[in-house]
Amino acid sequence: MDLSTLGGQFIGIIPLGDIVLYFTTFNLFMFAAVLAFTVLIAISRTESQVEAQFGTLKDREKKVGKAEFKIRRFLAIVCGLATAGAMVTGDVFDFTLFVALIGIVNIGIVAAVKEIDVLDSAFQYGIIAMIASLPLFGGAAFILASSGTLSLLEIVNIPTTTLMLFGSILLFLGVAGETGVAPFFATKAEMFRTPGSPFLLIIHLSSLMVIVRIIEILLIINKPF
């Protein structure tokens, strides 16, 4: 078992002390894609929603205000960078922190809007994110306790124990909650009703990319053979 079985060709590492970022074709592709989207978001305007009004023939235009635009763009860029980081990090705990950062920034992006329904789903999503910090960090702690290390490059050589399996299931639940993925997307889908599509893109992008990445990590931790 080695990393190239999963992600294709092994390209290289960036060591930062104990935390080692590594690149395979898979990681590099996701990293580049996320960065490309982030750049796109940074240079984009927002769209304005036009809705017909009742009673008259006039339209109502929903726009993103300037202050709102600035803060949301800032948070969206941070979210993009965090997602890009989560794609290449080779350390379980570092990954969980990236995911936590994505979670809080996602909440922030929608918290800056005015619709009550959207704020409500932002709040519910936030509650899930808070609950999810238990399985997220707890899962990482289980993996640390049973394997004695957090680095994926080392874990790949350690045989799987039951506790590691349990820890990785928790980790997955944590990521699912923190990014609002299936079947908890309902809260998230509600958040997309507000204008500001480039920023909403990053919410969706981060969750899907992190899910793809967590599958790689789960397969690294749990070696079926």
Partner: peptide, 29 residues
């Protein structure tokens, strides 16, 4: 483990603050 507690703690604190603020702003609206 001790150095990993600190991030967990900080995340908890940070999220509780942001979410309580959202809750208040929602109710206000």
């Amino acid at each position: 483990a001790e150095s990993l507690i600190l991030p967990g703690l900080v995340v908890e604190l940070a999220e509780i603050m942001a979410i309580s603020e959202i809750l208040m702003s929602r109710e206000m609206r």
